[in-house]
Design a protein around this nucleic acid. Sequence first.
DNA 1: CTTATTCAGGAACGATTGTTCCGTTTAATC
DNA 2: GATTAAACGGAACAATCGTTCCTGAATAAG
Lengths: 193, 193
Amino acid sequence: MARTKEFNEDQALDKAIEIFWHKGYNGTSAQDLVTHLGLSRSSLYDTFGDKQKLFSKSLQRYQQQNQDAVKELLDKSENVKETLHAIFKQAVIESLEDRITKGCFMVNSSVELAMHDEEIAKIVKSNSQTMEEVFTNAVKKGQEAGHISKQQDARVLARFIFNNYSGIRVLARTGERDKQVYDDIVKAVFSLL
Amino acid sequence: MARTKEFNEDQALDKAIEIFWHKGYNGTSAQDLVTHLGLSRSSLYDTFGDKQKLFSKSLQRYQQQNQDAVKELLDKSENVKETLHAIFKQAVIESLEDRITKGCFMVNSSVELAMHDEEIAKIVKSNSQTMEEVFTNAVKKGQEAGHISKQQDARVLARFIFNNYSGIRVLARTGERDKQVYDDIVKAVFSLL
DNA sequence: CTTATTCAGGAACGATTGTTCCGTTTAATC
DNA sequence: GATTAAACGGAACAATCGTTCCTGAATAAG
């Protein structure tokens, strides 16, 4: 039999997420990956194929991690509006804490690659659709519980929420460090719910 | 005396905007620029310095063009809310018409470069600040005229509007072609004004 | 111990990157 | 017509790109 793998594939993927998230696809070189993942060139290519496949796997892993977290929070929640508010507050905190202002890996990848890479486009689209469903169900739940206004259709509000979430992540990527700017946006968004 | 320039520098810049907008900074090669601008390598470098300077100039030109257009529309407007609505509708139309889904050059550049290039970061920041002022003044005007709700502070609404504008441009970049998605967002946004 | 497989390290690949430089042509001024 | 400067095409640059391949060491199971 053969020698066992010395590195954990998922841990390596997490490190790939970090650097792709920070530098983008085109901005990350093969050398960057070797250095940051701590594997040799050969192991890297043997394990993940090529750069594009590694990127794709990284983005998919990121998507799943995030979706699972948000979905679980909203499923468990007894007051969806408060939970959504908490999710936004968390995004704001991350945007301000993050010294290297990474924004959102999914948003960054959409902007950089979605129109040039079909596989990435698929991931992005699947993410949007799933998030829209998650938010729509959450809003419905909140409306039935009387926590969220019924003046707007649940799907309308879900798309609206998702749009502002994207916007905030772009804002973070621009390096905005004034908490008041984020707070104002969140305030306006939740005044509608 | 010397030979006169055979190409128009601003026209060349407009073509540079096109290709940088479409492919991004890292995605655009020197050869792409030569081919698309129609100048020789030497003329290109003699005129614009290097790739980074050309990009910077392109982005600044784009910024000025857009800001001037929006500012003029809002300054002339007698019903700011309607004008803002028209601006959003236009963004939606462009997002759907645009077969190569370019999104917004400023948003794209923010996400790709703002954190890695100080000069681009400056341009992005200046754009955000100017747009915030333009929108704030517009909202104030609308509030005084009774067209826009006074329930929220003008600056809060301005930041909110700008955030949704960014979000929509990201959505366009992801290739979303369902008009209803855009319309829902716009509907929600303007129900707050 | 042998065998099989995976690791690391690094040399090397061709292709492409951004950039520079040279020689020639073109045209506007004197 | 001589001079001057700009634009041109294209060769050439070193550097870096993503990727492949080879070697040798490491470690598991038979």
